[in-house]
Nucleic acid binder design. Structure first.
Lengths: 228, 228
DNA sequence: CGACCATTTGATATGGATCAAGCGATGTGG
DNA sequence: CCACATCGCTTGATCCATATCAAATGGTCG
């Protein structure tokens, strides 16, 4: 059982309301893996785990969003992936995390003991298969991301918007659950460049910025032409 | 059994001597997976498989070198990975290859039926584990590659040289089994930039270019300072 | 209302791309 | 065996996309 009290640093940013981790009811989650999970809250900017920490837990996003990233020697953060509701992350093969993870907005996560999952996978081959699929998806995502990084700034931003739209229920509206900084770190650009491209996409009529985080895709066709 | 005769396109480049695939004796290879393999020769530049082709075979490099890549819409090739002697590649989860693969120099490969390997994995859990490890390594490699692509040209080239040195037996000498074009496509740079950086590394005394493909690392320390 | 961030916008600098030419090795045909 | 064609690589000159530096704007919360 999972009974210990875990406290996580909640971001130092003044903006981050200090949300102490509390257990909440698991809702809308099924499957043998999720059954073992303990739900926790993480405030915006809160570190979930750091590079080099032991891979004791695997996480599932119940609500909110998480990014995994690596801190480069020059201080930049390279974001590897964003995880949205329903996504599982933190399942790395080695004994310690090769990336850090933090909540990009206030988020509710299911924490599951890695050892329990692995034990379960040994008894239940469908679980083993599920884990395998998670890794495979992760690799695919990394490969797509790799391609992104050799494109132009406009192409990167457009790809990102289309990717987010595809992963979000509402067809042509996206609520970006991360800051421009997070996006820039994902795309290997500066926040200024991201901002400029977004502005320019709006001028061209391809998108509308309802607010900076709520974007409406006006013309998929126009965007698709720009994404590569 | 694997008895059909397979012919592969050997590069159109005049430089590529036309080496017809022939079966050769498997040497220095053990393990249940390798036992099932049929050795084949591929000439420099020969395509091993193309994006979208069915993932019928898994390959092991006996000698030579292979790269996997994706063709971008603007005609560039983004190289995802290089595979050297001993490396296994082509094992993708979906039914078709998401990347293309070609020999960067004349190479000898072991071709194994994917279905046979999967069947074997179901009977032999150690094989399943081995496959798992291959995927995990692949993901790690992709993540490192991702980081590479947000660095400066010099850092990328230095990282590449150090990576190759680490994967090569001879401690401080590397025989690059690929062209500048392959390297540039891997690093997301132009051949001119790669060439300039290499030249500059030689001027600084960090390396010596015996020939353009045979490089001696003079000062690991100096290189390590530059790799990030 | 006022402070604080996040984001946008503007001006300038620069690293790497592009365009172009030269060089050196390797193989070919006379 | 040598002249030549070819290809891979290097070197040079210029241009441009994006970074950097700087400042204005806007949204949110106390």
């Amino acid at each position: 059982m999972f009974t210990e009290t875990i406290r996580r640093n909640v971001s130092q940013q003044p903006a981050a309301r200090v949300v102490q981790p509390v257990k909440v009811k698991p809702v809308g989650l099924d499957g043998p893996i999720e059954k073992m999970g303990a739900p926790m809250q993480f405030g915006r900017g809160a570190e979930i785990y750091g590079e080099g920490e032991p891979t004791d837990y695997v996480y599932k996003v119940v609500s909110g969003a998480v990014c995994t990233y690596r801190v480069l020697t020059d201080g930049r953060n390279q974001v590897e992936s964003f995880y949205l509701a329903g996504d599982i992350f933190g399942f790395e093969l080695g004994g310690e995390h090769s990336l850090s993870a933090e909540a990009t907005i206030n988020s509710k996560l299911l924490m599951m003991r890695r050892s329990a999952i692995i034990a379960l996978a040994e008894r239940d081959s469908s679980v083993a298969r599920q884990l395998w699929m998670i890794s495979a998806k992760e690799l695919q995502r990394a490969q797509e991301h790799l391609i992104l990084l050799v494109k132009t700034a406009q192409e990167r931003v457009v790809c990102f918007l289309l990717e987010m739209a595809a992963r979000t229920p509402g067809a042509n509206e996206i609520d970006l659950p991360m800051s421009r900084r997070n996006i820039a770190d994902y795309l290997g650009l500066t926040i200024e460049t991201v901002s400029r491209v977004v502005t320019q996409l709006e001028s061209s009529g391809a998108i509308v910025l309802d607010t900076s985080r709520h974007i409406i895709l006006r013309s998929r066709k126009a965007l698709s032409c720009m994404n590569s």
